[in-house]
Amino acid sequence: MSAYTEVRHGGKREGIAVERRKRRELSVGKIAANILLVISALLFIFPFYWIVTGAFKVQNVAVAIPPEWFPLEPTLDNFRVLFNNPVWKWGFNSFFVATSEMIGVCLVASMAGYVLAKKQFPGRKFIFILFVSAMALPKQVILVPLFTMLADFGWIDTYQGLILPAIGWPFGVFLMKQFAQTIPGELIEAAKIDGCSELRLFYRIIMPLLKPALGALAIFTFINAWNDYFSQLIITRSTSMMTLPLGLATLQGEYTTPYGVLMAGAALASLPMILIFLLFQKAFTQGITMGAVKG
């Protein structure tokens, strides 16, 4: 009996030791993962930090080697020079174009994605394949025919020329179609049985269910439109129609580059994108989670 008790206690002590060793290994792994995440976060944050601090440095300090990691003598001269230009007009153009594209893409993509996911009609799969194929085309390939069409419509150097070509973004349709497939078909049938019209069904039932995907798409669309330097450069002609990225590019001289002024403009240009991300952060994280566990 004593031998049995000794064996039992010995096994229990061994189990406790194994459990403690596992906990210790998990703690070490968790600490290492946290350290790696902190280092990665600092690496991603550093460019933004450098832009913000550089906005308060004079020219010779901004390009000094070794660099001045924090402005010892901060100045607002860069912002004074920046606002001698029509920065508010450029900022309004960027915000108006990006917001209009965001609303238009979310609306059109949600409708198209719902139809491709839940409606049965001839050529549905072929149309979806066309959208997926269009995602592989670089923007430069369609630039010439797009510019020709805009010129024929008289939309060069206009808001509609900047906004409307981006409304049918293939990635948006693809994203919304994938999320719309997760909506139970029984829910749609029940709404139709209750006498819900197609339009009311979409706005009252489908749109709320697509909210996480719409949040993610809104962030992607706004950032893509805000940073779309290439298309805006081709379509715009006048200074009054320039967006903020285009306007900041004109501040660069032929022989000198005012790095402090450009960093001040870049710091201001980053604020709307940060605001949009904070507004849609919850829906964005929900969309990523739903996409991770789908199926």
Results as ranks from 00 to 15, higher is better:
F202W: 05
K192Y: 09
I35W: 15
L36F: 14
L187C: 05
A249S: 14
G260H: 05
F128N: 04
G291S: 13
I31Q: 13
F126A: 12
S94E: 11
G172R: 03
P86G: 14
G195W: 11
I65L: 15
V97P: 13
G287P: 02
Y259G: 01
A269Q: 09
P71Y: 07
K22M: 11
L199E: 10
V81R: 14
V38G: 01
R20A: 10
T5M: 08
G54T: 02
Q160P: 01
A109E: 05
I188Q: 12
T158M: 07
F179A: 06
G10S: 06
E68H: 11
R21T: 02
S110W: 13
F174P: 04
Y259D: 03
I142M: 14
K57D: 09
W50T: 07
M1T: 00
I234M: 08
P67M: 08
K177C: 07
A180W: 02
A55F: 05
K294N: 03
L72N: 11
Q281V: 08
S238R: 10
L130Y: 07
F70R: 06
D157Y: 04
E198I: 01
T5F: 15
D194R: 10
E25W: 14
L217A: 01
V7G: 01
L42M: 14
M207N: 03
G15D: 10
Q140F: 15
R13P: 00
F126S: 06
F222L: 07
P212F: 11
R237A: 12
W226D: 02
M149Y: 15
Q59E: 13
M241E: 09
I127A: 10
D77Y: 11
F222N: 03
T221L: 07
F83M: 08
L271K: 01
W226C: 08
L279Y: 12
I223T: 06
L150K: 03
A166F: 14
A17M: 08
S110I: 15
I274H: 00
F171I: 13
R8V: 01
G29L: 11
G185L: 11
P245S: 12
T75W: 13
C106H: 03
I223C: 07
L244T: 06
I206W: 00
F284S: 02
L43H: 01
L76A: 15
E198C: 06
F56Y: 08
R8Y: 09
K12Q: 00
L233K: 00
V58A: 15
L262G: 01
A267C: 05
S133F: 15
I129H: 03
F202R: 12
P170T: 05
G54R: 01
L82M: 12
F131C: 11
